[in-house]
Design a protein around this nucleic acid. Structure first.
Lengths: 149, 149
DNA sequence: ATAAACCTTAGAGTTAAATCCAAGGTCAAG
DNA sequence: CTTGACCTTGGATTTAACTCTAAGGTTTAT
């Protein structure tokens, strides 16, 4: 069992954030000490890890609450409901992955084109790199200037 | 050239949002009409598409501004600077992809386990599914209840 | 030539998500 | 038995990212 401050330190968040998540139904400590201190279990900690990860990839707290509710309301949902909800979220996640892979390939191209790639300095902005995703690269001279002083 | 309202409709955002992006240095129209109306080019539109995509995968507007600045300040940066910055962003993107792939596989497992998969109803929450990512699935009976009325 | 549908700016208001503050209770160490 | 580091609640404040309002100028269609 972790007290709020311990859990906060462990996950590098503020205690206020944990109380905020509790108030908004995302993460309640599974116990309280006699004097009323919040006591978080390992499962609570896992749940927090999930929340933090989901946030990092662009889900809002209400999206996350929805995902977590699959657990909370377990017995109140029919299979088909659970499956439908999960499948919708899965599509969202896969769409995000596709977007990110496009970014990643554009950024790689940009990185390779900048200084010394085999086809150096063709693309000097993400936008150019994105736009050129299907075009053929052509060797060209370097055109970066030095940083101003 | 698109007027602000046209571009807004095209990308399903508010005109206010476009003015907000301009004020914050993310997207300025490349022209103005004689009477002062904003006129956005196709390149401006591409830039907007990029902003919207980047937002959808969890980048903040200041993250995005940083990515776009690679273009804007093109001539003011040395190659190594550009490359370094791009590579940092690339790492962030790849980390996000890894997170999302973990989510996706957990969600798939959950979806498969719910109603009628070969090993039905083993996992009934994302958390269980996440925790079980390395454990072996065991066939088990369905245990979902019907929705209450 | 006038109404409807656009556009302008400046500034105020909203929402989500956190963060801070005040007044006080708890607990381990010296 | 008190000092310091923790915890409690309730409510105010902040930040990012919009979103709206007001007062007026422009364009297009009838």
């Amino acid at each position: 069992m972790y007290r709020i401050g311990e859990l906060a330190t462990l996950f590098d968040v503020k205690t206020d954030t944990l109380r905020f998540y509790e108030k908004h139904g995302l993460l309640a400590p599974s116990n309280r000490s006699e004097s009323g201190y919040r006591l978080y279990s390992n499962d609570d900690a896992e749940k927090l890890r999930f929340i933090i990860r989901a946030k990092a990839v662009g889900f809002s707290l209400s999206d996350i609450a929805e995902l977590l509710s699959i657990e909370l309301d377990k017995s109140n949902w029919a299979c088909a409901d659970v499956k439908g909800m999960v499948d919708i979220k899965l599509e969202q996640v896969q769409a995000k992955i596709a977007e990110l892979e496009f970014f990643a390939s554009s950024l790689s191209k940009l990185s390779d084109a900048c200084c010394g790639g085999p086809e150096s300095a063709e693309h000097c902005s993400i936008l150019e790199a994105l736009e050129s995703s299907d075009k053929e690269l052509q060797p060209k001279v370097e055109h970066h200037a030095a940083k101003p002083n």
